[in-house]
Amino acid sequence: MPDARVERVTGMGMLTLRGAMDVLGPALGEVCALAAPDQRMSEAQGGLRANWMSPDEIMVVCPVERTADLAHRLEERLTGAFATVVDVSDARAAFDVTGLDAAGVLTKLMPVDFARMQPAEVRRTRMAQIPATCWCEGRGWRVVCFRSVAAYADALLRNAAASAVAGT
């Protein structure tokens, strides 16, 4: 049995920001005290996180109770600019995979070179048959997928965590 635990994460708020990075960046700095993340990277501080999603999309992760306030303040700050702020906290399901073999478990499901991933790197990728994103969170990995496939993702992660880890 590998050393890996899978836990459903609750209470995670998420905002989708769309817009040019030089538009979103200053707003993110003022409202969240976060720099705009570099391509494929993330910035995290004070319980907030900004993940680079695409050249014109940032995902802000925050405690769910702060979502409405942050969304409101970001919207206000971006008034007049071509930018979009949307609360997507309910659209997704999140899991924490922890333990010494956490990356080994994900290696079975995602075409990701975990050994070469940088600590601040975020991957938008595929987990078996569903889209997923993952990043390093504390001493493990946080995996986020769409909420409708949460049961599949849960079963998938637990199944992968239940058998031997290859090549480690």
Binding site: A128, Q129, R147, A151, Y152, A155, L156
Partner: peptide, 16 residues
């Protein structure tokens, strides 16, 4: 097929 058998054969989308 790998793990894609039984309950993992295909992801089912479920509404809330």
């Amino acid at each position: 097929a790998g793990e894609a058998a039984g309950e993992l054969f295909q992801p089912l989308r479920r509404t809330p």
